[in-house]
Nucleic acid binder design. Structure first.
Length: 533
RNA sequence: GGCAGCAUAGCUCAGUCGGUUAGAGCGACGGUCUCAUAAUCCGUAGGUCCCCAGUUCAAGUCUGGGUGCUGCUACCA
């Protein structure tokens, strides 16, 4: 099967990981888990971008060497990914010595192509932003619009430039020939417009910057931003013990299936990155997905406002499945979304506890009471006209879900899975197995319960990329093992009759076996009540 | 300013090629059942489909105009 390599952004280690870092990483993990279910060899790449003046300054403020600062922040990232059950295969750091080697080799290739040249960078420079500003965007007296109290400095310095302009035609042609490269589709126009207005070369080095990779051809200069950060994707592909060469990096996994990034850096991936790869004569990735940004209670998050969502806090109180589910199911990936704790709790209670958890609980309870805790043997009954539609829906579900996952439409995937679960709850009320059991209609009871168990299994299976722990526990409860490369589990009838199921919960506390974590039980009354009572 | 997109129930959103009384989930309210969790299931309320005009037998859907909001408009990531 085709290898699939996916990337999250490489996060800037200027501060602790925030929800904006967690969001694309959760999505990338879900997608990776999905491809693993299908049986694709899958590589999930994440990591950190650790160079630059901002990092250097942040470290200085804490009286730490930059590397020490980076090490600390990286630990926090990796800790959070563990808490969120992010199963990454590679964690690349741009301070990795191998990255320097890869970057130098890549640079030499581009340099040999004649795409690097020395020129002057002139303009108004905002020290706080660390960037040159366009004359027209400045406030009166050349004050920076983002830092209105600070005047910008006129700078005239030598920088190395990359000949982006040379690839104008090639990039336009590429995007014309690959209309699905940029996702979601509305973002594509923005990038095309940007290309059509004419591409200008961009500088790739800074002088007076020590925390970074020196330019191979001029060690006075340090590589700046994109020629460092983006190349981290390539370094990440090196097998752990492989010699750091481009050839080795590109052997197994290249090219990337999709880069998952925020819409704010889409251009750099859809234009700069493409040009860099073209210049280096490397194959291009298959896609870039620019996800939306998050607000909290409808308000843009920011440190100054103090209304940030702390992912550590969230996951410690509600568990990883809950956090993953909310951000993947309730927000359309690709569109901006909002987090409100009220809604978060409402959705979890409604979908996971009341709809899905309850179906599982009542189905298992009936199997325990009516079928000696074994998977019943389904036989044709007069109930088939009622059971068939549910089975038909379930049978189609794998294929429909696959399409949504492949389009990174986690919301739609989750929604259609929930549709099946809702139908099952309805089916129970329509067929009243408890009455049939009392009147000795065992064949009918068996047929109903088999339909329910298989549907629950299928829902758990297909939702497992989103809520891996929940699904694993449900599978375990059904006497099965949730594993990779098991796409045949999308079929109807995987659950073998007579399989002995695990003992049902002693109480009606579904959490006993869903094990979503215990901390939030004591910290959130509403959520707790609905699960426990 | 230029270009692009969006506007449907209190909230988040579906709505195919123009086709019957405009849908779902959540939230609210009422009822029902007892396998299950103050759950489930059923029902009710809630819509000028942003506005105006046009095309058409027929417009949430197509066309034009208007209003509002959002995004992009180059080297912070």
């Amino acid at each position: 099967m085709k290898p699939i390599a996916l990337t999250t952004p490489l996060f800037y280690v200027n501060g602790l990981p925030h929800i904006g870092s967690a969001y694309p990483t959760i999505a990338a993990d879900a997608l990776a888990r999905f491809y693993r279910l299908m049986g694709h060899p899958t590589l999930l790449v994440t990591g950190t971008d650790e160079h630059g003046q901002k990092i250097q300054r942040t470290a200085e403020q804490q009286n730490l060497p930059p590397q020490e600062h980076c090490d600390r922040v990286v630990k926090e990232f990796q800790h959070l990914w563990n808490l969120l059950d992010i199963r990454f295969d590679r964690f690349i750091r741009t301070t990795d010595p191998r990255h320097t080697v890869i970057t130098r080799e890549f640079f030499q290739r581009v340099y040999a192509k004649g795409d690097i040249y020395l020129d002057r960078q002139q303009g108004w420079y905002c020290v706080a932003c660390e960037e040159f500003k366009e004359e027209r965007e400045l406030l009166p007296d050349h004050h920076c619009p983002i830092h209105p109290t600070l005047p910008c400095e006129w700078r005239d310095e030598a920088n190395y430039f990359f000949r982006l302009s040379r690839y104008q035609e090639a990039i336009a042609t590429f995007h014309h020939d690959h209309p699905n490269f940029i996702q979601p589709e509305p973002r594509r126009n923005e990038v095309l417009q940007f290309i059509n207005q004419g591409l200008r070369d961009f500088s790739i080095s800074r002088i007076n910057l020590s925390w970074g990779i020196p330019l191979p051809i001029d060690p006075q200069h340090t590589l700046y931003v994109w020629f460092d950060a983006l190349l981290g994707y390539l370094t990440a592909l090196l097998d752990p013990d492989a010699e750091p060469t481009l050839v080795n990096a590109l052997t197994h996994w290249y090219p990337f299936h999709v880069h998952i990034i925020g819409k704010d850096i889409l251009r750099f991936h859809a234009v700069y990155w493409i040009a860099m790869l073209l210049s280096a004569d490397l194959p291009l990735p298959e896609g870039v997905f620019g996800h939306g940004l998050l607000t909290k209670d409808g308000i843009k998050m920011g440190k100054t406002l103090g209304n940030v969502i702390d992912p550590f806090d969230l996951v410690s109180r509600y568990g990883s499945d809950a956090v993953r589910y909310y951000f993947l199911k309730e927000i359309e990936f690709g569109k901006d979304g909002d987090f409100s704790e009220e809604r978060f709790i409402a959705i979890l209670n409604a979908d996971l506890a009341n709809t899905f958890g309850n179906l599982l609980n009542r189905s298992l309870g009936m199997v325990s009471k009516y079928c000696q805790q074994r998977v019943p043997t389904p036989q044709p009954t007069d109930l088939d006209p009622i059971l068939q539609p549910v089975q038909n829906l379930a049978t189609l579900l794998g294929d429909r879900t696959r399409q949504h996952y492949q389009n990174l439409n986690f919301r739609a995937a989750s929604e259609i899975i929930l549709d099946l679960v809702r139908d099952c709850n309805k089916l129970i009320d329509e067929t009243t197995p408890w009455k049939r059991f009392k009147t000795g209609q065992q064949t009918e009871v068996d047929a109903i319960l088999y339909t329910l168990l298989e549907s629950v299994r299928l829902a758990a299976y297909l939702l497992s990329p989103v809520v891996p722990n929940l699904s694993r526990e449900i599978y375990r409860q059904l006497g099965l093992n949730l594993q990779e490369s098991t796409w045949q589990h999308q079929n109807w009838g995987v659950l073998a009759p007579n399989t002995i199921l695990l003992a049902p919960p002693l109480s009606s506390n579904v959490l006993n076996y869903l094990s979503l974590g215990n901390d939030f039980l004591s910290t959130n009354t509403h959520f707790t009540e609905n699960w426990l009572l």
